[in-house]
Design a protein around this nucleic acid. Sequence first.
DNA 1: AATCGCCTCAACCGCCTACCC
DNA 2: CGGGTAGGCGGTTGAGGCGAT
Length: 276
Amino acid sequence: MGRPTCCDKVGIKKGPWTPEEDIILVTYIQEHGPGNWRSVPTNTGLLRCSKSCRLRWTNYLRPGIKRGNFTPHEEGMIVHLQALWGNKWAAIASYLPQRTDNDIKNYWNTHLKKKMKKLQSAFDSQMMASDSTPSSISKVQTGKSHQNMTSTKNPHHYPSIYASSTQNISRLLEGWMISSSSSTSQKELADQETNKECINGLVESVNFEFESVLAFDNGSWDKMMSGDYCPKGGYVYDEKAKCILHERKHQKQESLNNPPLTFFDRWLLDESASQL
DNA sequence: AATCGCCTCAACCGCCTACCC
DNA sequence: CGGGTAGGCGGTTGAGGCGAT
């Protein structure tokens, strides 16, 4: 018979928040700042548990939150980070500062997972038809996957995981290209054309981001984040982008001679160290 | 207009970890 | 050192919206 958690206590209100409750919470946090959630319900008089207050603030009321309308760029970020880390939504959200982990998780579960499944099934059926693919090609991640990746003793193992994920998506696209040429009806062709456009955008952004994340330090990352993005999917390779690509090539060449610790290297190194 | 079924997303639940006493 | 608790995270649920019939 354990002690009830804060949310199990009698008199605690559950369900959707009212505007009045929101105002009370926001006013309190504006005065005292976020944190010490335990004291929030008692100090504000809200009949909510501390967890509920924290969640409401971080997922909804916190300033600077962007809601809905995920851009292809953001989709690409989510897809490749999910492929890299699995369902580490908080970690993924840290690279999309305007998005909450809950939002990203929801978007993955309702949109991107389906998209990935579609890609996978299209790829599978193509492979079944051609029957010429090495069995070693792995699948696109749609759920729990590389969560134990960071436990590796050598943090420099991750590029292979990254590369395989990039390749998977590229290969899926290849599969798509082949299958679309042998399809039958006009409608199917049109549908596949539309899908191909979406997939192209996704894959292009994913590939670009994959390489960028691996090669960029913080400054370059910021530069890339402020770059232009074509709403149809994919980057506009303007002068800024060319400059970044040139810098990337230069960094790659340098890294071959004397591999530096990139932003991700350092992060993963910290992660690995903390788990030892 | 009514009903049904699917989709979305805010919120809750349960577990884990860190911290405090 | 061990127990208790708060905070954080990922999984899941369910109410409400919306399109199809």
